[in-house]
């Protein structure tokens, strides 16, 4: 019962790491309500970001039938980057200004990719990937240009591109985040409800269609939901890499390919991985005073596990 054990392990890890996240920090183990209050939003953001990134990665890998797909391939993170760069340039950086701009950028990129991918009223998986890559490149170049124009905020844009969960929250921002998170869970739930169709989509399109799966509608739905979910994550936490790419593979290795297990499993595993990375980051910063980019740590964790799985698979 490898699967059951897997769930237990993930839940235990999630609970354990969450407690650790509340107990661990420069202030040490403390019951100070202020310190705890400042740790909770960070914990929520980390769990949310890690979980959603991994879940979307799994859904997109299933949809596009490509194990090398990363959730940013559909262009929404680059779009969010443009949004953030614009907000910095225009000076609209109120507490919720940046998330709104980032999300708007992500949605804009989504529209662009979808429009480009449509050929004769249909979208195909390949055209989505190609359009996503094209839009990513264009958006990245645009971000570069904006970075040059907004010299003082260079560090901020670069930092955004790296992703970070060390975000300071005001009550307003927290409410906006919680609201977005709730909506995101609704969207994720919708994705999950498509588990069987996603399973079936992993065979030829004709077979899938003949089994009653509306591949066009499914493609559009998964694509749109994924883009929106990524938009929310990137709006608050920046572009954290690796989680979306690596975690689904780990989860499939543990639970098999059924999306009914892979989607929620990826959420848990993604949250766990990001939490672990964030804790390491915090510990490292406390010990050395150097702040590492979050994506570096996730890579350090994720890549060895990924390589191990690949070797097991190919053996």
């Amino acid at each position: 019962m490898r699967a059951k054990l897997g769930w237990v392990v993930l839940l235990v890890l999630l609970a354990g790491l969450s407690l650790l996240a509340l107990a661990f920090g420069p202030a040490g183990l403390t019951l100070d309500s202020q310190i705890l209050a400042s740790r909770v939003p960070r914990l929520l953001l980390t769990v949310f970001a890690g979980g959603i990134l991994a879940l979307v990665g799994a859904a997109l890998q299933g949809l596009l039938q490509n194990p090398l797909v990363d959730p940013y391939i559909i262009g929404s993170s680059s779009g969010a980057g443009v949004g953030v760069a614009l907000s910095l340039l225009l000076g609209w950086t109120s507490v919720i200004g940046r998330p709104i701009f980032a999300f708007a950028g992500a949605v804009g990129a989504l529209f662009l990719v979808y429009t480009m991918a449509r050929m004769r009223g249909k979208v195909s998986r390949l055209s989505l990937i190609l359009a996503g890559v094209a839009v990513s490149f264009v958006a990245s170049s645009l971000v570069m240009v904006l970075m040059v124009l907004s010299r003082e905020q260079l560090a901020q844009i670069i930092y955004f591109l790296m992703g970070s969960t060390k975000v300071v929250f005001t009550p307003t921002k927290l409410w906006v985040f919680v609201g977005s998170a709730v909506l995101s869970f609704a969207a994720a739930g919708r994705l999950l409800s498509r588990w069987r169709s996603l399973d079936i989509l992993s065979t030829n399109i004709e077979a899938a269609e003949s089994l009653g799966v509306d591949t066009q509608r499914l493609t559009t739905e998964v694509f749109v939901l994924s883009a929106l979910l990524i938009g929310v994550v990137v709006a608050f936490a920046g572009a954290i890499s690796f989680i979306g790419l690596v975690v689904p593979h780990i989860v499939r290795f543990m639970f098999g390919p059924r999306h009914l297990r892979v989607l929620p499993g990826s959420f848990l595993a993604g949250a766990v991985l990001l939490l672990a990375s964030d804790l390491c980051l915090r510990g490292f910063a406390m010990a050395t005073g150097v702040d590492l980019p979050l994506s570096v740590v996730t890579a350090l964790f994720g890549v060895p596990v990924f390589l191990y799985i690949m070797r097991r698979r190919l053996a």
């Binding site: 399973d199 098999g256 390919p257």
Partner: peptide, 13 residues
């Protein structure tokens, strides 16, 4: 029901 000429399976069910 339709049985195609060839089937491929991207995921290992």
């Amino acid at each position: 029901a339709y049985v195609p000429q060839e089937s491929y399976f991207a995921l290992d069910f």
